[in-house]
Amino acid sequence: MKMHKLRRLMSVPLTQIILFAALMTALQLLSMAGLIPNSFTYAIGSTLIYAIVAIGFCLLLGYSGLASLGTAGFIGVGAYAAYYVMESFGMPYIAALAVTLAISVAIGVAVGFISLRVEGLYLAILTLGLSEILRNLLMAVQATIKIDISNARLFGVQLNDSGAYMLVLVTFSLLVWLTSNLIDSPTGRAMLAMKNSTSAAQAMGVSLMKHRLLAFVISTVFAAIGGLLYMMYVRVMTTSVSTLLTMTTSLNILGAVIIGGAKSLWGTTLGAFIVYGIQSMFLSKIPFFQKNPAFITMLTGLLIVVVVMFFPGGLTQFLSGIKAKLQRSFRKVREDIYGKDLG
């Protein structure tokens, strides 16, 4: 009976989020105590930033059925907003957050309107063009931006390295919680209906315009928040050299969502850890890969190809398949021992 209650408690998203956050905080405490290398938790933090972006994209692709390749540009918008508000005008973090939200909502609405006219892969390539516009625009404005975090204050508290990590973690937990609530709300159901058939959804009274705009606004806001956190965490960005704002990032985010399983938030987080985390957390510690970083890129690519080839539903499908198999064989063993009636 107790087992049953525990299982039900575990299936509530909030419990899962609290457990995840507690685990990540514990890792940070361990690294502060010197038991885990600092670079390990640093890699976790940066992966969580990508996971935030990926979760916004999950809502767009997995729940609304809209493909976009503009993610990189939206990340750039958040990063530059953070830089200008905090570094040039010396305003606090909250102000940067407000400006980022305002700009990304505006961009999200614009892209949402575009999505009403152009659909499918066309939309993906069009948003790719939009991302290129944003990247060229930001590059022409200023090629390198750098934030000095010692000026940054959050609720009057000085932000340091572990403070930035906690900021990322808290933002991640909050956004996952909001998203999991949205998915189960009527709005989330309407989005899912829209994904499966636009005509049927419209016939049931779902406003295409409202939900497409909302989906794009949410994913743009998540990406921009990712950019903002990137500036708080990594603190420097070079537009002309780095690949952060190019097509590669948009594709990697898309890859994270597909690999994890397009309709699962934890799956998407897992996907982000596979695409971004594995190489920075584990592989870069192995001497062989340190000597040949090219193998890391190849291995990540190979992993992506294999997962998509053999598990079209993503890793969540793979894991639930294993779970079902285990349960079946477990039941069989029990039946063998006690007979069928007790099963």
Binding site: N252, A294, G301, M309, P312
Partner: peptide, 28 residues
């Protein structure tokens, strides 16, 4: 042709994975 029911978006992701493989392979 050996993948399990790969849809267009899945194919896109596969080509993206190939980009990583080639990017890593060329310097080697």
């Amino acid at each position: 042709r050996n993948g399990k029911s790969v849809n267009p978006v899945g194919k896109q992701i596969i080509t993206m994975g190939l980009v990583s493989i080639i990017f890593g392979g060329i310097p080697l």
